[in-house]
Design a binder for these strands. Sequence first.
DNA 1: CACCATTTGTTCGTATGTATA
DNA 2: GTATACATACGAACAAATGGT
Lengths: 241, 241
Amino acid sequence: MTLPRTAGVTLWRQIVLNLERDILSGAFAPGEKLPTEMELADRFRVNRHTVRRAMVVLQEKDLVRVEQGRGAFVQDHLIEYSVGKRTRFSENMALQNHLPGGTLLNKDVVESEGEMAQALQLPAGRKAVRMDILREADGRPIAIASHFFPLPRFTGIDEMFVQKSSITACLTEFGVADFTRVYTRITARPPTQEEAVILRQPRTRPLLVAKSLNVDTRGLPIDYGCTRYNSDRVQIALDKA
Amino acid sequence: MTLPRTAGVTLWRQIVLNLERDILSGAFAPGEKLPTEMELADRFRVNRHTVRRAMVVLQEKDLVRVEQGRGAFVQDHLIEYSVGKRTRFSENMALQNHLPGGTLLNKDVVESEGEMAQALQLPAGRKAVRMDILREADGRPIAIASHFFPLPRFTGIDEMFVQKSSITACLTEFGVADFTRVYTRITARPPTQEEAVILRQPRTRPLLVAKSLNVDTRGLPIDYGCTRYNSDRVQIALDKA
DNA sequence: CACCATTTGTTCGTATGTATA
DNA sequence: GTATACATACGAACAAATGGT
């Protein structure tokens, strides 16, 4: 394909429009790898730099994402993770027609310490159950959630989760009929190697990190959590509904 | 300093406790560079691996952040950027005793297109004013905000911002007595080279990206924005107040 | 642009102590 | 006691990112 070099539109802009059309029309499917920059340069009969200039624009438009050494990929549809007073993982996924999943990666009893102790108002010396859960949607990993439940109140919740595989269901068993989100604080950082492997994402893509506290109906803290989302598949939504 | 190798505490854990104490006591100030891994290894008379192991733990505790090729730094206090129905930059900073600042980086008139057009409900062919603003707190850059105001309603708002340097004040002049946040969607991605330079951050540290829509009291969309926060200095807070 | 020193990141291999069956 | 498994600790080399010349 040879692009007209006479019209009032620069070559790189024509390439942008061309690829934009192909992506939006579905000729390149979401998640699919685009041809390499050299292949595109050959196809449009231009220099590779001209293609690169177009790719920068496509990235700004969130239509593609480029990974050094791997290639350019059509941006996947992002799962919207809604955060509000009543945030429940399963409900959240169901609302968007995603099949929720959860695997217990790790469980442990830890000393009260640092942020976790402060959030749960745990005095020094008291302990908490830590559970690391891999969150999945449609069979694909989307987040690693570390939850801390204060002891002795929630003794055995880890064993129970293996059975029920739902935190909400477990809490109900412990007499927590309802709970609400007190706060959520969101940051971003690169993943550790382990996190990248578990979430099946390149180390160059950041994590969205949400730290949150849930309390029961009496206002007692019951669950401090730190959830690390794959930022290629998830966006956090705050709708004022 | 030689660490006891006989006690019931492993070497790397002793190093964690040692550095933790020095950071919390202020012996290493926030933002300061720690000694290199080799220097710490010499100081504690251990192998570099043993120091690295301790650093992993300190990172998990959010006490330090490590940058390849540069070193390890004591984690700075994070500015909390609160997001809610009534989100105003200046108020937000003032509440936390930060001195707010804003510089107009760039202004432009753009065709309605993509997400922006959809959010502002702008038909094809209509235009909008785009303003890129560098947000600062205490003189340090914390975010780049791109705002889109629909035309013709807000003709000249860019000129006005140069005078007033406050979006809220400009909107008041245009008869917008009050406005509210309809939604905020948060993602994360690596910065472009330009963004990294402007925000004075390494390219290895991610941006927090918040896309948001504001409407006036009649529910008409007036401002679509895409704000890119330096994730080393800012965390987004959602308090249920 | 290339080149270099500094610093962190990764991967081999090796040795040792400490539980546990 | 012995065998096995696992975590701890050290050593050397190389890769990758950064910053300066």
